[in-house]
Amino acid sequence: MSDSATEYWFCLTHHRVEGPEGCRNAERLGPYATEAEAARALDKVEERNEQWDNDPRWNDDLED
């Protein structure tokens, strides 16, 4: 990962992008390399959850 001065997190408490001095890591997603990536954190979570929910290797409900 890059230097912490150029890392960003998405705070789940405040719903905003933060730098290294933000909230505790337990309350945020990341680190991300750019502010734009951090801003999309919740979208990325939703996209991944959708993929996993529809992946037959990980979803017993989809098996015959």
Rank of each mutant, 00 (worst) to 15 (best):
D55R: 03
A26W: 14
E50I: 13
D43I: 04
T13Y: 08
R48I: 13
P31H: 04
R24L: 14
W9D: 01
P56D: 09
P31A: 04
N54Q: 12
A36G: 12
W52I: 15
G30C: 07
G22H: 02
E18Y: 03
W9N: 03
P31C: 05
R40Y: 09
L42E: 07
D55C: 02
L42I: 12
A39G: 03
D60W: 12
E7Q: 05
L62K: 06
A33K: 10
E50P: 11
H14K: 14
P20Q: 10
E47R: 15
D43A: 07
W9E: 10
A33T: 11
V17T: 02
L12Q: 03
T13N: 14
D61F: 09
A38I: 00
V45S: 07
G30L: 04
P56G: 08
P56H: 08
W58M: 12
T34C: 05
E47M: 15
C23L: 04
E50T: 14
D3V: 09
R40H: 11
K44P: 09
E27H: 06
R48V: 11
K44M: 10
Y32I: 00
E37R: 05
N25H: 10
P56K: 15
E47L: 07
D60Q: 14
T6F: 03
N25G: 05
E50V: 14
D61E: 15
R24V: 11
N49V: 12
E50F: 15
L29Y: 03
S4V: 14
D55I: 04
R16Y: 04
Q51S: 13
C11P: 04
E21T: 04
E35H: 11
Q51N: 15
E18H: 08
S2A: 12
E7L: 02
R57N: 09
A26G: 09
V45A: 09
Y8D: 01
W58H: 13
P56W: 09
L42Y: 10
G30I: 02
P31D: 01
H15Q: 09
G19L: 04
Y8C: 01
D61L: 13
E7K: 01
S4H: 10
P31T: 05
W9L: 09
W52E: 15
R40S: 10
A5R: 11
N25I: 15
W58L: 15
V17H: 01
R48D: 13
N49A: 08
S2P: 06
R16N: 03
E18V: 03
E21Q: 13
E18G: 00
D61H: 14
F10N: 00
G30S: 04
T34G: 06
T34D: 03
C11H: 02
P31I: 01
A39P: 02
W52T: 15
N54P: 08
